Every structure is written in C-alpha cells, then in structure tokens.
Computed example of a mutant assay.
Amino acid sequence: MGQNLQSGVRLRPIDLARGHGLSTQAVRNYEEAGILPVADRTPSGYRTYTPLHARALGAFLALLPGHGHRAATSIMRAVNDGAVDEALRLIDESHAQLLDDRRTLRAVETALGDLDPGAGRERPAPSAPGDTFIGPLAAKLGIKPATLRTWERAGLVRPRRDPRTGYRVYDEAAVRDARLAHQLRRGGHLLEQIAPLIDRVRAAGGLEPLEAALGDWHRRLSARGRAMLAGAAELEAYLRERG
C-alpha cells in the first residue's frame, strides 16, 4: 500500500457512514459486495476500517453518477482484486457508451434538421383526405414498399388498416415516423437503435416537443461526462493509496 496512509488509524463502520450520509448497513453491504477491501476484525468480531477503506468508498460514490451502480461496482471489485487492467477496460466501456449516446443525439438532431420545415409537426387530428397509402409514401421517400413493411414489423411505423380493403393507411403521425426512420437509416443506424428514438418522439407528442427535450438530453450527457471525470480523479487517488 502507499506510504501516505495513516496505517494506525482505525475507523468504525459509523465513521465511514457518517461522512457520506449512509447507514452502517450500507457500508457493510459495500464490503460484502467487494466494493471495499475486506476489513480487519477485532477479537470480539467487530469490523475495523482504515483511511484506505474511506478512500475506496469515496471512489465508488464518485463513480456512481457517471457509470451507474453495476459498472461502478464491477470497477471497484476489479481494483480490489488487483485486476486494474480489467477496471480500466470497464471504464473504457462506459466512455464508449457515452460516445455512442452522443452520436445518437447528433443523429436525431440531423434527422430532424433534414426534415422539411414543418413536416410532421403536431397538428389537430388529420382528416381522412390527408392520409396516404404504402405505395405513394414509399415513392415519396425513395424506398420500396417492402422496406416500410419491415419498419412496421420492427415497430418503427404504425399504419392503421382500412376496414373495407385491409390496405395500410398512413396518417400524419405514421408519415412523421417513416420520415424520421428514413433519415436515421440513412445515417447508418440499425432498426433496433431507431425504435427507442421513435418511441421518444411518440412519448413527447411529436417532433416539436422532442426538439425542446434535446437541450435537456445535451445537459444530461454533459453532466455524465463531467461525473466520469470526477470519478476518475477519485479512483486514481484510491489507486495511489493502494500502491
């Protein structure tokens, strides 16, 4: 271990817990989960911790906001097992996921920007004359009708069926979803990646509300990135203490 540790200092579970607003049971649970190094025991069986345990707890709690509970736990377990390279690999995976989320956000913004001004905006319920069928819609998008059917099976587009003919009928919401799916596919996104984005549009109530939510999406990604930096600093301090 590093020489800067106060090796003679002994801490109780309550000492670690109070510093972070935790319960003593949470501290014990973290030790049992491998997040903290194994504590020494007194002759009577009570746990005793050291400043190293306090540093480990601080590192874990700093990792949580950026990496999530599962990844932060795995990172700390790897460090405590001496598998630092594995811990660094797990951190790389979290950064890769954040980068992928940023790319997804950029793709959504690009797709929205590529739509015609006002296309797909939420309006009062469309009248029947505004509906379209699979052939005209496919021609307008420059794709095959079979592609629209594939998107329908994947949940990207939800046309209704004409009760008399059984033909697919695309109202304004379905056309909006098809246009957005088309732009995202052109951007290289897979169907399973597009489906959650289409769901966001539907949950938001259309493109305009989604556009308003993009700023919040940006803020959350930035906060996650900064949290990862803070977590990295605390983890590096813990690694130095371990030596």
Score class of each variant (00 low, 15 high):
residue 36 L to V: 07
residue 77 R to T: 05
residue 63 L to D: 05
residue 44 S to N: 14
residue 131 D to R: 12
residue 44 S to T: 15
residue 118 G to A: 01
residue 30 Y to M: 08
residue 55 R to P: 04
residue 63 L to A: 06
residue 33 A to L: 14
residue 116 D to A: 15
residue 54 A to K: 09
residue 98 L to Y: 04
residue 124 P to A: 14
residue 52 L to M: 13
residue 99 L to T: 15
residue 83 A to G: 06
residue 104 T to A: 02
residue 81 D to F: 05
residue 24 T to G: 07
residue 37 P to F: 04
residue 87 A to V: 03
residue 96 A to G: 10
residue 61 L to N: 03
residue 40 D to P: 07
residue 71 A to E: 10
residue 16 L to W: 00
residue 128 A to V: 12
residue 83 A to P: 02
residue 46 Y to S: 04
residue 58 G to S: 14
residue 31 E to A: 13
residue 11 L to G: 08
residue 82 G to R: 00
residue 39 A to P: 11
residue 57 L to F: 06
residue 83 A to L: 12
residue 34 G to V: 06
residue 82 G to T: 00
residue 88 L to N: 13
residue 38 V to N: 08
residue 107 A to G: 08
residue 107 A to L: 00
residue 109 E to V: 07
residue 19 G to E: 15
residue 21 G to Q: 00
residue 39 A to T: 10
residue 129 P to F: 02
residue 110 T to W: 13
residue 12 R to P: 00
residue 43 P to M: 12
residue 52 L to S: 04
residue 131 D to T: 09
residue 102 R to I: 11
residue 87 A to C: 03
residue 72 A to R: 03
residue 36 L to E: 04
residue 87 A to L: 02
residue 14 I to H: 07
residue 100 D to Q: 15
residue 54 A to T: 10
residue 114 D to Y: 07
residue 30 Y to K: 08
residue 96 A to M: 08
residue 102 R to D: 13
residue 68 G to D: 05
residue 53 H to Y: 04
residue 104 T to L: 08
residue 100 D to C: 07
residue 39 A to V: 12
residue 61 L to V: 09
residue 67 H to Y: 15
residue 22 L to Y: 01
residue 73 T to Y: 02
residue 51 P to T: 12
residue 64 L to W: 07
residue 41 R to E: 09
residue 28 R to P: 09
residue 84 V to P: 02
residue 74 S to T: 09
residue 126 P to R: 02
residue 94 S to V: 03
residue 115 L to Q: 04
residue 105 L to E: 05
residue 97 Q to A: 15
residue 93 E to C: 07
residue 51 P to W: 05
residue 39 A to G: 09
residue 120 G to N: 01
residue 47 R to L: 13
residue 103 R to L: 13
residue 12 R to L: 13
residue 128 A to H: 08
residue 72 A to I: 01
residue 99 L to D: 15
residue 82 G to Y: 00
residue 11 L to I: 05
residue 130 G to C: 10
residue 98 L to E: 04
residue 108 V to N: 03
residue 128 A to K: 09
residue 91 I to L: 11
residue 17 A to T: 01
residue 32 E to K: 15
residue 57 L to V: 05
residue 45 G to C: 13
residue 66 G to N: 07
residue 62 A to D: 07
residue 114 D to M: 13
residue 100 D to S: 10
residue 109 E to R: 15
residue 48 T to W: 10
residue 98 L to R: 07
